[in-house]
Amino acid sequence: MTGVLYVYALAETSEAALPARRGHRGAPLRHLSRDGVTAVFSRHRRIELPPEERYLWRHETITEALMADRAVLPVRFGTTVADEAALVTMLTTRAEEFRELLALVRGRVEIGVRALWTPDEPQTADAEPAGSGRAYLLGAVSVRHAGAHLAETLHAALAEQAVGARRRVLVTPRLLLSGAYLVERDGVDRFLAAADEVGRAHGDVELVCTGPWPPHSFAAGTPEER
């Protein structure tokens, strides 16, 4: 049979039924389990999804529905495999990795935190002769250093409240910190309160928290960045 399998998530194998939801384009959800790990997918003759809101939410809500009663590793949006045989090979060869990651995220959720700031304009024109590009660049570098330092301080304070943490620093000049924090499901309020404290202690940054999310940022075994 030709076609492809679109994979939404890997989950710990469970007695629980699959969520009563449809996959992309109305296709039924299917599952396949090996070695304690279940892949949840739908079958399509062919599928190429643009990263549009409805497709993103479809992928997300299926992952969230699974997460209601089992540990889940979200799979990257747009992932397809050729057939069931490819899925079986993937599950059996990487079973240990997946089981370890599932154990890490079980009972936990991800909270996203973005810290925005308005960087100081590098001091230039007033103090330097017009056209002093060097002074401007030195100023910009110093602003960036100050930002990176502040981002690491914020991240350390937030990571202290979490069991796992990931971060990117200064993705844009205004986006000081883009962090993901893995917290116990019943510890979300405590984490948000702590994030509030961190925000209050740094009046020059604006913290925006989102979630709880499935553990997207903790599903690929990248090393801890704590």
Binding site: L73, T79, L101
Partner: peptide, 19 residues
């Protein structure tokens, strides 16, 4: 936030990424 999570995170399988 959703976009950022879904396209840049998650398990990467040995498969084709449609994006």
């Amino acid at each position: 936030e959703l976009l950022d999570r879904l396209v840049d995170n998650g398990v990467v399988l040995h498969g084709d990424i449609t994006l």
